[in-house]
Amino acid sequence: MNTTLIPSRAAVGKYSDRYVASFPIALPADQIDLRQWFAEMTETDYTSYSPAHIAMNSYEKDGVLLTTNVENIGTDQIVQHYTMEYNAKDHLLLHSTQSDVYIMKFVPVSVGVPWEMQIRPTSESTCEFICMFGIDFPNALLQKVYAVYGLGGLFLRKHLTKEGIAFARDIEQKFSAKA
């Protein structure tokens, strides 16, 4: 996955892993409002993007969008408590500083999880949806253990690909209907 977010707004720590992929959309970039798409996402939408997605809830507090997602990745369940840190029509950054990962669904570990999305034009009539998520480990030992246990990010890359395709398809469908 050679795609990058330009400019990326997610800080990268000493013990961080990042996964980025892009997905084509057959619409002009200026026709898409990523902020609107995310803010209007329902739990039904979220769970339809991947069989790994279990639940989602969003609400605003003091003008800031907060979202909680629950999903299974590999053999682990993760509960992410996101705060929208940056939002523009073509670029979002959500960050969960205290995500709860339940290894084998019962051993809790706390990690940070940034989630960044961007729409970037590829031509006058097409664009790409770029999606990044990562893990910010609290220490080197946990990062090394996860590298072995998580098969070098295999489960995360597979999940990113599956949900990224569904996200792009949904964005294209929703904003084609508004044209």
Rank of each mutant, 00 (worst) to 15 (best):
A52I: 01
P24F: 03
M104I: 09
Y86G: 09
V109L: 05
W37Q: 01
C131S: 13
I119Q: 01
P24W: 00
K144I: 10
D136T: 09
I73F: 11
K105H: 03
V70R: 13
H91M: 03
A55G: 12
I78D: 01
M132E: 14
P138G: 02
A177C: 03
L154I: 07
A168H: 00
L66K: 15
Y15A: 13
Y49H: 14
G63H: 04
Q118L: 03
V145L: 15
G63M: 00
Q98M: 02
L151C: 01
I130Y: 05
M1K: 06
G13F: 12
Q98R: 14
G153D: 06
F137C: 08
S8E: 07
L27E: 14
M117H: 04
E85K: 15
G13V: 02
Q98Y: 07
H91A: 08
S22C: 05
A10M: 06
V145K: 09
Y82S: 14
T4C: 01
F167Y: 10
V101A: 13
L141E: 07
L156I: 00
D33F: 06
A179R: 15
C127I: 11
A88Y: 14
Y46R: 00
K61F: 07
M104E: 07
A10E: 06
C127V: 11
K89Q: 15
M41K: 09
M84W: 12
T4Q: 13
T126A: 14
Q80Y: 10
F137I: 01
V113I: 10
E43N: 14
L5D: 13
Y102H: 08
F137V: 01
E40L: 03
L141V: 15
I171E: 04
Y19G: 02
T44H: 02
I25M: 00
N72C: 10
G112N: 08
S50E: 08
S99P: 04
H95P: 08
L27M: 03
Y49T: 09
L93G: 08
T4V: 08
F137W: 09
P138M: 05
P24S: 07
R9F: 08
H91V: 02
Q77Y: 02
D136G: 06
C131G: 11
M84Q: 14
V148Y: 05
I78G: 12
S123E: 06
L151W: 13
Y19S: 01
E116P: 00
S110F: 05
C131M: 15
S48V: 05
D170Q: 05
